[in-house]
Design a protein around this nucleic acid. Structure first.
Length: 564
RNA sequence: GCCCCCGUAGCUCAAAGGACAGAGCGACGGACUUCUAAUCCGCAGGUUGCGAGUUCGAGUCUCGCCGGGGGCGCCA
């Protein structure tokens, strides 16, 4: 990565200056290169001299000039300048930039990869909505953030596993079983009251009918509780299949569907409770088992297992926390992931300190856990707030959204803003303005290139083969395009280190803009035979751009169309 | 009352403590006999909620206030 190269050159310049007595001895702080605010200032700038002033006991400008003087020569550097009050600015050499086109084409689908992760195993757990019905639009942001982050981490050299945590224990899925049972019995002509806490959506009836078609009325022969348990199990499996189908439409595929119930069945939950007890961080009060969260800096203790007086069914007494702790143990100790990343909605933010405290109590380094809390999406339709309830059967599904807006626009829109902002998502506008969505701007650039390449293959196929003289690429629009392509690596690094997928769409848009400007200013194909060489070079540039656009789009799970 | 997130152009949002705070949409004015006009060019729009502090330097960090969202149960 060019920024890394320059960073190292600056470091060497300082060492060299120190060796020559031009700068006093001091330990060099990390060198950071940024992009200057205006292009005429150069491509990269170091503000290090400003930070060094007190350390080196020299005026910043003097340090800047000294560094500039000592930077070792390098092909990539066209110009080094200093600027008040103490910047060293680097401008990349046009010739070097032009040659990067070949390097980008060589890298192919690998272009943009950076090796931050060094093969470390990272798990991203996301969506993880209760398996009680179709995914709602509320889960869509979770999905988009989680999957994009997983893609970015893969590009950053991590070994990534995507996981969906299936909450198949507890009361929500029991309600699902009871709801199916009621519809099932009703369909078979038996008067069965629908449970008060049941799921009222139409899909429950459909599931009941599907079960009848497959298994007939055999569950009516069972005792009711047993039938509900059985239908719950079948229902969860059916819901998971539907989730897989919906998620596949959204370009998301999980490696693992992890069952919460399995934590209990395997005995891990009991084991963890014993471990916590052995460490003296639990106690029993009023028949409930408590975790001493206050010992880890929290303001309240937390319940792990509720008392029999409050919850009669023993299966439903463990709280979320009681499952979360064995689950994190399973991730980080049993399965040995180096890091566990969670994507949680803001409505679960309160659980974050408890889980981290639990990790500490179990002797698991909380730094291996990274919980991304995203603010909730406010859904509106024509400016009016929409209230959603899965139980009441009043909600918009992810599938509806994919039908109306399309997967590409949905994913792009949902990762466009930082996870920290509560975004408004107006359904009416999302549908209406779908053609003005920035995602099409980027895709259009890709399609335009594909079209140029088709035309070239048709009218002048020889231009697509043979050695191109990249040194002919000297137009500002051509060089800007190369500059923009080279930034992909930086964006991957930024998004992966800060775990902020929202940098990708902004980058993709900038890259699209650089191409559209190039397209305007530089004609690729020409009827004039004298233009053959420049056409050949520009075709290479166009192919490289197509490559990088496709990669940027793929990192977002967005398709790169050949025509639009 | 306590905790988390946010407050930047008319709207939606960017901005690894760095230089004159940037995009898109919207408004206004231009550009298609030329590789896809889902494009390009120009123009307008700002006391970064308010007040202090730290720093050579603050939209960014700290404190206080104001406003919005979320969370604080033996609910899930």
């Amino acid at each position: 990565m060019i920024r890394q190269t320059l960073t190292e050159l600056v470091r060497q310049a300082i060492l060299d200056a120190q060796a020559h007595g031009d700068l006093p001895a001091f330990e060099i702080p990390p060198v950071e290169l940024a992009h200057p605010p205006r292009p005429e200032m150069g491509d990269y700038s170091a503000s290090l001299p400003l930070k060094l002033a007190s350390l080196a006991k020299r005026p910043p400008m003097h340090i800047a000039q000294t560094i500039a003087k000592h930077v070792p020569p390098h092909d990539a550097i066209g110009k080094i300048e200093t600027a008040a009050p103490g910047y060293v600015n680097f401008t990349l050499a046009p010739r070097w930039l032009a040659n990067q086109v070949a390097a980008i084409l060589d890298a192919g689908a690998q272009f943009g990869n950076v090796n931050l992760g060094d093969g470390k195993r990272v798990q991203v757990e996301f969506v993880s909505a209760n398996p009680t019905g179709p995914l709602t639009i509320g889960s869509a942001r979770n999905m988009a953030i989680g999957d994009t982050l997983a893609r970015v981490l893969e590009a950053a050299g991590y070994d990534v596993a995507r996981e969906y945590y299936v909450n198949d224990a507890g009361s929500q899925v029991r309600h699902l079983g009871a709801s199916i049972y009621a519809r099932y019995a009703q369909e078979l002509g038996r008067a069965e009251a629908f449970p008060e806490d049941g799921y009222k959506g139409e899909y429950i009836g459909e599931m009941a009918r599907a079960i009848i078609a497959r298994d007939g009325d055999k569950y009516l022969a069972l005792e009711k509780d047993a039938a509900i348990r059985e239908l719950k199990r079948i229902g969860v499996a059916m819901v998971i299949e539907q989730l897989k189908t919906s998620l596949a439409r959204a370009h998301v595929e999980f490696d693992t569907w992890f069952s919460e119930q399995s934590l209990r069945d395997s005995g891990l939950l009991d084991e963890i409770l014993k471990m916590l007890a052995a460490r003296g961080v639990t106690y029993v009060q009023d028949g409930a088992l408590w975790f001493r969260a206050t010992e880890f800096g929290l303001d309240k203790d937390a319940v792990l297992v509720r008392s029999a007086q409050v919850i009669s069914d023993p299966d439903e007494r463990p709280t979320y926390l009681a499952s979360d702790l064995p689950y994190l143990w399973n991730k980080l100790v049993v399965r040995g992931f180096d890091r566990a990343i969670y994507i949680w909605g803001a409505d679960h933010q309160g659980d974050v300190p408890r889980v981290l405290a639990g990790a500490e109590a179990l002797g698991v380094d909380p730094k291996r856990i990274h919980i991304i809390v995203y603010q909730l999406v406010r859904l509106t339709r024509g400016g009016e707030k929409i209230r959603m309830s899965k139980r009441a059967g009043e909600f918009d599904t992810l599938d509806d959204l994919l039908d109306d807006v399309g997967v590409d626009a949905v994913r792009y829109l949902l990762i466009e803003s930082s996870a920290d902002v509560a975004m408004d998502f107006d359904l009416q506008r999302a549908v209406q303005q779908s053609n003005e969505n920035p995602v099409y701007y980027v895709q259009y650039a890709h399609a335009r290139i594909a079209s140029i390449l088709r035309n070239a293959a048709e009218s002048a196929p020889d231009l697509l083969t043979g050695e191109a003289n990249l040194a002919l690429l000297t137009h500002p629009a051509e060089l800007d395009l190369v500059r923009q392509m080279l930034k992909l690596e930086e964006v991957v690094e930024l998004a992966a280190t800060k775990m902020e997928p929202h940098h990708l769409p902004h980058y993709a848009h900038d890259l699209g803009a650089a191409f559209h400007q190039f397209y305007k200013h530089c004609r690729v194909l020409s009827s004039d035979a004298n233009d053959a060489e420049i056409s050949r070079a520009r075709l290479q540039l166009a192919r490289a751009t197509k490559n990088v656009l496709a990669r940027a789009l793929d990192l977002m799970g967005v398709s790169a169309p050949e025509s639009m």
